[in-house]
Amino acid sequence: MVQSAMQEVFGIAISLGTVNKLRFEASDAVTTCVDEAKQYIHCSKVVGADETSFNQANLDGCNPQQRKAWLWVAVTTPHASSRQSRPTQWLPLVTFFEIALTRCTQAAENLLGENFGGILNSDRHGAYNWVELERRQLCWAHLRREFIKIS
């Protein structure tokens, strides 16, 4: 797919090996930023989380059984920082994606951090049950669908 796009869009012939080499170089180049974003999620006061399945196949060689993969996402909620003197300054919105071959509690803990102490906005998926109920908020879209179904 990348090979054909490079040829069609840019007129560049590129081998599959070169595509893979460039993929690894790009991954290495953003590793620090990705780690910082994940750490920011772990320390955030409010995080929304969700996951969705997709066919991962074995393109990277890490899924020889070609199990279904899960794309996990965590999104911070921008809010005024109580540490700053001017309440008009807002903390950044950060979105973090992670791929896992599982949809279990371990993947959710890895996404949010085992010591996550913020408020979690999510659906009722059991992988999030390790977060105390007092720190969980159900997703409004899920609640709306349930209310419509009940009515």
Rank of each mutant, 00 (worst) to 15 (best):
N58F: 04
F97T: 03
I99A: 13
H79S: 08
A26R: 07
V94L: 12
A107M: 00
G61V: 05
F96S: 05
T76D: 04
K38M: 08
V47F: 03
N115Y: 02
I41L: 08
L93F: 11
G113A: 03
V131D: 01
K21P: 13
A57S: 05
D28M: 06
T76N: 12
W130I: 12
V94M: 00
T76L: 15
N115I: 00
N58R: 05
G117R: 09
Q65N: 12
E114V: 02
S27Q: 08
S53T: 13
Q39F: 00
H79N: 01
L59Q: 07
F96N: 00
Q106E: 15
E8P: 00
A13T: 14
L71K: 08
L112C: 03
V94C: 08
R83M: 05
S82M: 01
F24A: 12
K38V: 06
E134M: 05
L143T: 01
G11A: 06
T88C: 05
K45W: 15
E98I: 10
S44W: 13
T105Y: 02
V131K: 14
I41W: 02
N110H: 12
R83T: 11
R83D: 02
T77C: 10
Q106R: 13
V46Q: 10
L71H: 10
T32K: 15
A29S: 10
R83I: 00
T31H: 04
R67W: 03
H125N: 12
R103Y: 11
E8T: 00
N110C: 09
A141V: 15
N110S: 06
Q137M: 11
E109P: 02
